[in-house]
Design a binder for these strands. Structure first.
Length: 450
RNA sequence: GGCCCUAUCGUCUAAUGGUUAGGACGCCGGCUUUUCAAGCCGUUAAUCCGAGUUCGAUUCUCGGUAGGGUCACCA
């Protein structure tokens, strides 16, 4: 009978959930699901000083946000009894010994660390991604495995836990390659079976070094807060450093699971590219039902509009939804858009710069003429038809083409928005409504008359 | 510095002992009934270097070089 696949998420709660942690989880998740396996979340909090519950919670929240769930949960700080037992057995059997030495952390203090007797062999392990890797372990010396007989260190805890939890596959970052031989040494001293290893390359920052705070946002929560969609984020991170056989990029979780193979993980590191992440997010945004989006879009917009000292109008906000969705890649963009005043004219009358009203293709004279004509045309459109941009366009179009679209449409759009850049005038007018639109055209005319 | 890992467009990557070295993101340009955005089309752009094997290497081997990782009583 073959053993059931068991993998682990072993973050240490010494900081907020890092993008690299998310990637570790995704890879292990895909592998586990593909093989119908079990996922063990193990909080590696043996460092009492640096570990915090707050961070552990953040990591759990972040993984939950990405819908990466696990089957079993452990905390190493609650397992010292188990480690102690194994440390004692090692000392009793002579494979490890207690060593009285001066503390490295507190010079002058004497401590009794536990050291493993290093047989000094060459250790070769077979990595699923990289093939055989050999290390000469003599240079490791008698490594310290515990601060004292009661206080296991990371490497020891990991080896014991991986064995006790029947982990079959250790899939982790490249940075652990050189940790592997020392863990194997401990493993062999303890008489444990060796699990299978796979080391994938680290995520890189724009400068090609390990992704760090210097190179951009590294906490998963910051992406969540900036309005990235979890599915898009997950998809992008999964595809970074892994090409499925189908070579598809946009994939559902189910597709990823179906296609996943550790052997397809790349050997070289990939740069985390925020522009591509934004593109992924946009694709997901575009495919979302509007109903799933409207609450957050409306909330963000309202907040930004209120902040600008304008009156919020949710009826108008709702009409803006489809237009807005087209113009953003990330929800955060909306905050910027609205915060910069690019939506102000929907909620208050714009101010005009008379020199801007005619546009490049017109003059003051022509602008007055066209705007007056437009006022009349708009006035003749039935209130009910004013709801539809296409109807407004149809009414205005003959006149505009006859007189020159640029000369007519620019003043029209500018009178409605007061901005050099905006969505098209037909859409804007339909949102504003007949009365407001006409009022603004008139206001622009009088701005020119003065 | 020792040890270990890696090396295709700016970035993510595909492919092969023989290809016009393909795609995606970005950039740039054009088109699309005003502007902006979007969309569509297109352009630009890569096999780190040097030997060897071979009729032929981007691909295989070796050596450089470069980049990264790791060398704790952190994880």
């Amino acid at each position: 009978m073959t053993e059931k696949t068991r993998v682990r998420f072993p973050p240490s709660p010494t900081g907020y959930c890092h993008v690299g942690t998310a990637r570790m989880a995704i890879i292990n998740f895909l592998f586990a699901k593909k093989n119908n396996g079990t996922i063990i979340f193990r909080s590696e909090d043996t460092d009492k000083e640096r570990s915090k519950k707050e961070y552990e919670d953040d990591i759990k929240d972040s993984l939950n946000w990405l819908k990466l769930n696990w089957d079993e949960f452990y905390r190493q700080s609650e397992r010292f009894e188990i480690y102690r037992k194994h440390i004692h057995s090692l000392v009793d059997s002579g494979k490890a010994y207690v060593s009285e030495e001066e503390s490295k952390k507190e010079p002058g203090q004497m401590v009794s660390v536990v050291r493993l007797k290093n047989p000094g062999t060459r250790v070769t392990f077979s990595d699923i991604i990289r093939g055989d890797i050999t290390f000469d372990t003599t240079e490791l010396g008698d490594l310290v495995i515990a601060r004292s007989v009661d206080d296991a260190l990371y490497h020891f805890a990991v080896v014991v836990d991986d064995a006790e939890m029947n982990i079959t596959h250790i899939i982790r970052g490249d940075d652990h390659i050189s940790n592997t031989p020392r863990q194997i040494l401990i493993q062999e001293a303890l008489g444990f079976e060796r699990p299978l290893y796979a080391h994938y390359p680290l995520l890189l920052g724009a400068d090609k070094s390990k992704l760090s705070k210097r190179t951009g946002d590294t906490s998963v929560r910051s992406y969540k807060e900036n309005g990235y969609l979890p599915d898009a984020f997950l998809n992008y991170i999964a595809i970074l450093g892994w090409t499925p056989k189908s070579q598809k990029e946009i994939m559902s979780l189910q597709e990823m699971i179906a296609e996943f193979d550790v052997k397809d993980l790349h050997k070289s590191g990939a740069v985390f590219d925020i522009d591509k992440l934004r593109w992924f997010n946009r694709q997901y945004l575009l495919n979302m039902p509007e109903s799933d989006l409207s609450d957050s879009v409306l909330r963000i917009m309202e907040e930004a509009i209120l902040k600008r000292g304008l009156n919020w109008n949710s009826e108008i906000g709702v009409q803006l939804l489809p237009m807005l969705r087209e113009r953003i890649s990330v929800l955060e963009d909306l905050k910027i858009l609205a915060g910069d005043g690019e939506l102000d004219y929907f909620f208050s009358n714009p101010l005009y710069d008379p020199a801007e009203i005619p546009g490049k293709k017109g003059t003051t004279i022509s602008a007055i003429k066209h705007l007056s004509a437009l006022r009349k045309i708009l006035d003749e459109i039935a209130e009910s038809e004013f709801r539809e941009p296409e109807k407004i366009k149809a009414s205005v179009w003959d006149y505009a083409t006859k007189e020159g679209t640029g000369a007519v449409l620019w003043p029209f759009r500018y009178s409605l928005t007061g901005l050099a850049r905006s969505p098209d005038p037909f859409f804007v007018a339909s949102v504003l409504g007949k009365q407001t639109s006409i009022e603004r055209v008139e206001a622009a005319i009088s701005a020119l008359d003065l």
